[in-house]
Design a protein around this nucleic acid. Structure first.
Length: 587
RNA sequence: CGGGGCGUAGCGCAGCCUGGUAGCGCGCCUGCCUUGGGCGCAGGAAGUCGGAGGUUCAAAUCCUCUCGCCCCGACCA
């Protein structure tokens, strides 16, 4: 294609409200334009990148026998009510009403829709397994769209669903997807980590997230440098910090004391109280599926809400409102504690962080405003509670899975997530088949998602420099750009045209910069847009019968004969095809 | 949802505090010049100052409301 005829609106200045690299560069280089908060138009260059990524996704899905569908984005409320997710999804789901007054929602994922097809058509174990997928626009009314294309309200997702007769079949389907995901991300030029993840509102048992390490990400990952254990901090486990030293026996005597005005852990740690945070019990009240739950962690630990949700077995979890806290515990935040009579009508369930097991001499609120207890023995006073892992791990803590490893925490961007759903959706929606013994059993399902725009954005986050984007060859909008440095010079223009024709004839995706612009402008744009291979044609090198070959990421150009260009380019492309054929592995 | 910031020409910004003819840079158009890293010179087009209401002789500027965008937070009791 000729640059002079394309719509590539590059920006010299940095857009004011872009903060992360991928956002800045995709706007500046003419790939994206915003329409509203978290809603972007894909310009021609971005469209090409998206199609490249989708092609890789399709190839790898097809390779494991998955079949492509195209399902509606507009869903009747009824089908979401069948699984209860019409309510669970809350405000995150875009909702509307049709002219007949029927409630509808815009699809944020497609478990219900695929399951409805499965229940209508799948009857026998002989039809299983089935693996179905689509690449569709998803809508999510995020509370806070941000970071350009990283967290948006309308985006493209590859979502796949597996339907198996039993758990063993699901295990195989899950493994197929795990391998396919690795191949997809490697082929897209992304280094990633697969981590244990929290299943959240999707439900189900095992789940693995595919994460790209970048500060632009919104998740925190804990990884062990020794054994390879990696988990989203939402569910990462550690051996924790060492338990606080055993206090003297006198401190085991329960004693109530006045703490007027004390509101926080810090207040109590400061004079005149001087109770170190590590000796305090932090008490938090939540509402889990409508029921109050009290969670207790050590004063210097943070509660991990995802872990609490899991421990409480809740679909929906939120912090309790102030008035709910007063009703549950009889006091206001600042004086809350786990010491209450569990037999009292309406007494909330108590969950205690497992790291507190056996500790005594602790300090906690007395559930009476302005009073705390000292000398709290967890085994004695919190006996009515259940222990569970509730605390957020911290960097440097010992790995829970191996002997000498330490956990490293870092920011990461989620680009894919695979779940073992089990029978949650099939049971709720009546998707059953007859097994070989003639019994009717619910289909065992898995669900597997990839964020397509996020792959593109992650590639930019990982591969850019101060001049612009450095696209991986596999997903670049064009593979090669031929830049005519002096378009007015007939010899230069002719040489550039010949290279363009030669490369095009060889099947290379090439962008010819034939604009009547100064060399500086063209070279700046070429760097900004990030085409992997640049062939510069100019008077100087042409005088020696040469043109300049320069991979985008390399510092220097190489002068080669024009006749060499096609061969050089093909050699670079062949390397990528070779790697692609191996599922992204360089072997 | 809580907090903060910002809406002035296509883009980036100044002007607002202290009311009085709407400005700068980039981009765009024309001409000359230049031609290997976002040239130079000259001329030009382009803005209901996000919207509504109010105060005032007079509002981009002050007041009220509203819409939009960005950032931080949304366990830390």
């Amino acid at each position: 294609m000729r640059f002079s005829k394309l719509f590539i609106p590059t920006l010299k200045e940095i857009p004011a409200d872009a903060t992360v690299a991928s956002h800045v560069l995709l706007l500046r280089a003419g790939f994206l334009r915003p329409l509203a908060a978290g809603i972007y138009s894909h310009l021609p260059l971005f469209r090409r990148v998206m199609l490249k990524i989708e092609a890789i996704v399709r190839a790898e899905m097809d390779r494991i026998g998955a079949q492509e569908f195209r399902l509606p984005a507009l869903h009747p409320a009824e089908i979401w009510k069948e699984t209860g997710r019409w309510d669970v999804m809350g405000e995150t789901m875009f909702r509307l009403t049709d002219r007949g007054g029927r409630s509808m929602g815009l699809g944020m994922t497609h478990e219900e829709i695929f399951t409805s097809i499965a229940r209508g058509e799948l009857r026998s174990w002989r039809q299983l397994p089935q693996v179905w997928y689509q690449i569709q626009t998803k809508f999510r009314d995020e509370p806070r769209p941000k970071s350009g294309v990283l967290r948006v309200r309308e985006f493209t997702m590859k979502d796949a669903y597996s339907f198996d007769l039993d758990q063993a079949g699901l295990d195989r389907s899950f493994e197929d997807q795990r391998r396919a995901y690795g191949a997809i991300f490697r082929r897209c030029g992304l280094s990633f980590v697969a981590v244990d993840a929290h299943s959240g509102a999707m439900g189900g048992s095992a789940s693995t997230e595919f994460m790209v390490r970048t500060d632009a990400g919104e998740d925190d990952v804990a990884a062990c440098g020794s054994c390879g254990y990696a988990a989203n901090v939402e569910r990462a486990e550690s051996r924790g910090a060492a338990a606080a030293a055993e206090p003297d026996p006198a401190a085991r005597v329960l004693k109530k004391f006045a703490t007027p005005g004390v509101r926080t852990i810090d207040d109590l740690a400061a004079p005149p109280y001087g109770q170190p945070a590590a000796r305090q019990l932090k008490t938090l009240v939540y509402v889990a599926d409508g029921q109050p739950v009290v969670a207790v962690v050590r004063g210097d630990d943070e509660l991990n809400e995802a872990k609490l949700q899991t421990a409480a077995g809740a679909q929906l979890l939120r912090p309790a409102r102030p008035e709910e806290i007063s009703v549950s515990l009889g006091a206001h935040p600042g004086s809350l504690g786990g010491l209450y009579d569990p037999r009292r009508a309406g007494a909330p369930r108590l969950l205690v962080d497992a790291s507190l097991r056996g500790l005594s001499g602790m300090v906690t609120g007395a559930n009476e405003d302005g009073f705390h207890y000292a000398g709290v023995d967890v085994a004695r006073e919190l006996a009515h509670g259940a222990f569970a892992d509730l605390r957020r791990v911290r960097t440097g803590e010992r790995c829970a899975r191996c002997e000498r490893g330490k956990l490293d925490l870092f920011k990461a961007l989620e680009i894919g997530h695979i779940f073992k759903l089990g029978t949650r959706y099939s049971a709720a929606m009546g998707a059953r088949v007859l097994d070989p013994e003639g019994r009717e059993v619910p289909i065992v399902m898995g669900s597997y998602g990839i964020g397509v725009e996020r792959i593109a954005a992650a590639a930019v986050e990982l591969h850019h420099d101060e001049d612009g984007i450095v696209w991986p060859l596999s997903i670049a909008p064009y593979q090669v750009t031929v830049v005519a440095l002096q378009q007015q010079d007939p010899a230069v223009a002719r040489a550039a045209e010949q290279l363009y024709d030669g490369l095009s004839a060889a099947g290379v995706e090439v962008l010819l910069d034939d604009r009547d612009e100064r060399a500086g402008v063209k070279l700046k744009d070429a760097d900004l847009i990030g085409i992997p291979i640049r062939i510069a044609v100019g008077k100087k090198s042409l005088a020696e019968g040469k043109v300049e070959y320069k991979p985008r990421g390399e510092p220097a150009a190489e002068r080669i004969a024009p006749e060499e260009v096609v061969r050089r380019v093909q050699r670079a492309l062949a390397e990528v095809s070779f790697v692609d054929a191996l599922g992204g592995r360089r072997e």
